[in-house]
Design a protein around this nucleic acid. Structure first.
Lengths: 359, 359
DNA sequence: TTGAAAGCGCTAACAC
DNA sequence: GTGTTAGCGCTTTCAA
């Protein structure tokens, strides 16, 4: 149909010929601008522009090993928690002129390994967000490429986390100030580093603030998981609950509400993460907000520093401050109707469930 | 500290030497398995495994042009709408043994161009999700690399969209069945392809179903945008509203509720997309669900087909079915208190706003 | 400051 | 089937 030749993208040689210089000079012009005569450099840029020349990143990467790509692998792309993190990461990556390679482990440690296997040799560094791999596997990776883990700590591997202890402490204080004396922690995945630190922090806060704390779970860190927890909670109700994350808190609130329990009048609920939906549910969720975007950005910036040769001898994890966002799901404890049962407020037609319930 | 030499990754040559064959044979073993003696192939795989050899994807890409990477660029990574799409895309990409390169345009057409500029030469194909670039720019891109656009149609560029007309029709029917006679459409971004098709579809549905329809906007496709629309809506209230997307619907509901308008008793509200939060808000949002994950998957699969040489002469956009998810934000119209004002149901202390209100 | 030449690790003819 | 030999487009000594 058309006369156009199948236009091959112009190379360094095309530019060199057109500008009447050696290929190496063209290369220098773009890679090592100082090392070439200003006049000729200008001429070269000129002709390069005319020809529409663009350096070929992969050809460039072959001899240098510099691909300008970093891999970000998340444990679960569907989890809204990763949204803001990704966004922060992406902007930091772009800002540095790098490109982000995204992989989803779909909550599977083995899939995570696979994808890294395929990807690792292509990238200059790796961010592992909420990795599901065992420590040993992560160390293996970190030995081969600069690596930063997010939401987890690991000896010898740089990491970025949120200050869970402080956040949990604030949550407990908040509940204490509202008059609550017993707090139930609804645990997330056992394998989760964050879950461990949160529960530990709550126990310590309980000691310090003279609050009684207990733990139920583990449950999946989802709305469904939270709903499941409600049944268990009802066996031994407390007037205050802290959930591993917002999704679980939301699930919990829904299930409790369905059972006729009023939030926050009967039970105060606090979540973690401050995901987008936390502000939209009813009642709006009081939650410990993680600086999601900042975590992504920080992880990437630190990774880039390592790539540039910084040794980051500070083996200490970078801990970003979290803050308590008070919304409508927490309120003063009402002395007259704590445990053992909230049965009096039952919604019409709902199945009765008491503290001694067997569900 | 240690004696380990700075281990260079083993190459094809290392394997060749160790196995006593030519390098090309090793290459064939991995790239063109049929073309080599089963026995020697086995021996080569063996020694390769022992040496821990992995093919170097970028070295492989240089002579062949096959990078096994595709770029996905989204207009806004923070928009929950893209979550499921990305997830679907990622899984299709991984399934094909490809790697996904993710870029965020941050709602800026120029940033989108930039990132594509840097990225294009590295990938075998491109998915443009909700692109903010002008048609001409997209055509330019599509000329250089196989491209599929998502959520938009464009002559000569393969696309994947949802069946907005059908979805809108279903929404209108639903409202009609509930006795509503007048529907307000709250418009999203003017530049949005989806907005155009949705409004047009509603007009047509209005004609067919003998419903009165009108349009207000445009507003930003966010919670804030929806809230802003509430003020305008109150000037000329209707008993039913369809918003451009869920975020706007949520914002609208919030603002109306604050003004003492009850949803769905006073106003029925329908959104689009069925994002994660739609099921969590109160009242739960009736919405036209897009098959988000399927869209991502389909776009990628079609792109891969093009990469493999399919011409996809079917210039027709691929239209995926949407379905109406009925939840709690829609209800029967109550004859006795339609427009002009919902003032009678005013929440105590809230400012009065009538149809003639001036806010 | 510039040019010539030798790779980076892999593939793809082309012979044998 | 398998080996030989040029490259892919760019960088990087090493001379000049």
């Amino acid at each position: 149909m058309s006369d156009e030749a199948p236009h091959r993208a112009p190379t360094i040689y095309d530019v060199a010929k057109a500008a009447g210089v050696a290929a190496s000079t063209v290369s220098r012009t773009f890679a090592r601008p100082g090392r070439v005569n200003a006049a000729t450099a200008e001429r070269i840029r000129q002709t390069a522009a005319e020809l529409g020349y663009r350096v070929n990143p992969i050809a460039q990467a072959l001899p240098t090993g510099r691909t300008s790509m970093i891999a970000v692998v998340v444990s679960d792309l569907a989890n809204p928690f990763h949204n803001e993190i990704l966004r922060g990461a992406q902007s930091a990556v772009a800002e540095a002129g790098y490109t982000m390679l995204l992989a989803d482990a779909q909550e599977s440690g083995s899939r995570e390994r696979e994808v890294l296997e395929r990807t690792m040799s292509t990238v200059e560094g790796i961010v592992l967000a909420t990795s599901r791999m065992p420590d040993s596997a992560i160390r293996m990776i970190a030995k081969q490429r600069p690596t930063v883990v997010l939401n987890r700590t690991l000896a010898d591997v740089p990491s970025v986390v949120t200050d869970n202890p402080r956040g949990m402490r604030r949550a407990a204080e908040h509940l204490g100030e509202l008059g609550h004396e017993r707090i139930t922690y609804v645990a997330g995945p056992e394998a989760s580093w964050a879950d461990g630190t949160r529960w530990r922090a709550l126990r310590e806060a309980g000691l310090a603030l003279e609050l009684q704390v207990r733990r139920i779970g583990p449950y999946e860190p989802t709305v469904a998981g939270g709903a499941r927890a409600a049944a268990e909670l009802l066996k031994h109700p407390t007037s205050a609950v802290i959930a591993y994350n917002d999704m679980m808190a939301i699930g919990l609130i829904r299930a409790l509400t369905t059972d006729g329990v009023r939030i926050p009048q009967d039970v105060s609920v606090i979540g973690f993460d401050n995901i987008f939906a936390a502000d939209l549910v009813t009642p709006a969720l009081t939650t410990v907000a993680a600086p999601l975007a900042a975590m992504g950005t920080t992880a990437v910036r630190n990774l880039l520093a390592m790539i540039r040769g910084a040794r980051l001898q500070t083996a200490e994890p970078v801990s970003l401050p979290s803050r308590l966002v008070v919304r409508a799901s927490t309120a003063h404890r009402r002395r007259n109707r704590t445990s053992p049962a909230w049965g009096t407020t039952k919604a019409p037609g709902a199945e009765v469930s008491t503290a001694a319930g067997s569900r």
